[in-house]
Design a protein around this nucleic acid. Sequence first.
RNA 1: GCGGGCGUAGCUCAAUUGGUAGAGCGUCAGCCUUCCAAGCUGAAUGUUGAGGGUUCGAGUCCCUUCGCCCGCUCCA
Length: 512
Amino acid sequence: MSDSTPAANTYSMDELVSLCKRRGFIYPASEIYGGLNGFWDYGPLGTALKNNLRDRWWRDMVKRPPIGPDGEEVSIVGLDSSIIQNPKVWEASGHVGGFNDPMVDCRETKSRYRADHLMCLGLKGQTEGGQIYAFLENDDDSLAAARKKLEKYVKRDLADEEVDVCPLTALSPDELAITVAPDTKVVGSLTEPRQFNLMFKTFVGAVQDEDSAAYLRPETAQGIFLNFGNVVDTMRVKMPFGIAQVGKAFRNEVTPRNFIFRSREFEQMEIEWFCHESEAEQWFEFWCDVRAKWWQSIGLTSDNILMRKHESDELAHYAKEGCGTFDVEYRFPFTAPGFGELEGVAHRGNYDLSRHQEFAGKKLAYFDQPRNERYIPHVIEPSAGLSRGTLALLCEAYTPDPERASKVFMKFHPSIAPIQAAVFPLVAKDGMPEIAAKLFGELRDRWDVVMDVKQSIGKRYARMDEAGCPFCFTIDGDTASDQAVTVRHRDTQAQERVALDQVAAFMAQHVG
RNA sequence: GCGGGCGUAGCUCAAUUGGUAGAGCGUCAGCCUUCCAAGCUGAAUGUUGAGGGUUCGAGUCCCUUCGCCCGCUCCA
């Protein structure tokens, strides 16, 4: 998350969460049992919204992929790999090593540290009877403070040769017991390092022993790398090309927060774009541009979208030196005035395929006929959050309006709105419901449409405002004679008259 | 995992020093209604997050637990 100009959003997340529950977008998971931290269920409208976002992505990336720099459509094929994979996958990917951070807590200061980020200072060759002072790695002030405490303890200045520095993780439990934590003066306030396993562990088969242990995938990407060879062998693809996948991933987040922004079960929409190393930088720029524009095309305004280059110290373990990662970030109400990550476009180099080649002992090189060269492709990865994208759409759509009956309406882009049109007979008599039913039948095959004949027209309009339905078609007393209906526009509340036989054309024009 | 705050109807919230849990909105039904939650009538919905304790009596006090929010920590 990063800072920027003041927030445009003037509502609180509580209001949005409340509307999501009230209107069937998102419910707390297993709510009747008191919920479960970090999990959420999508209601009927939330499901429709999320599916629309997913389908739009699939259509724009796989079925009708973007035009590449050479003016031709790029080539992307789809995939749906399993959630549980051979446990060795996660050793090769670096998740077993890099995704398990040993943590220590300080009982005195209530601080938590990554154990591998703490270093220890002590007298060389002395452990018994002495004291050890922990300090933060790469922090000169912390180091100086630790040394000062050590010198005070031994009551003299120390030469550099006399002191010994080692990682906290190298300490024995006895040594840890005589260690003084940063910002404290007493010994033994640090807990033993504890593993924070961010991957969900499970067991394959009915017998639960370590041999059957497996993990739910923490990202969908690895399933693509595992099938790289299969796709090359079976799909007549040629470099450069992409493999796309949408699916669930699971992470045991330390702190699930901010509604569905950081949940433990979430969905990703990922493309792994394979190319020759010499073209990787060009494709990286290409995908950053394509993906930023795509988010804007579904209704996220440029004001709330930000492209941000990662600082070098926050690069992922797979990120290629010097090329880095770009984030597409969105200004959520809970991050404002800052931004939160929506999608990361990463240059993964050939890290993953090389690792799998090494760990699996299977050749994953590609023979490039035009180049007459065999190589392990480099990978550009536009990795988008489907759950986060859905949340961004909800946040972007939420529009308070004290003037209208609902006090708020959801301004979804018509193409991804969970309900794209509503058909209403103005009153439930005089043949109006019959005309409405006929129109409803014509529209529903192609769009998400509802029909409602109950209650006053104002109430139905207001209900559609909260659901974010962009257009309501109302059959009135004149329809039978003039063959026209009223279109009511959600955003402006304006009304216009449209010929009955032009409603589908109207929808095609305004919704797509 | 730590600290702080919170948890009452679908939603937003009331409920005196501990004394029978209510309102508005929403939902549903009926009447009505020819363009914005109209009006009238009626209805449903709560072990007050869960469990235990103190008390004649607990939404209210105490303990435990679960969940949510904020801050730390973390986010390959």
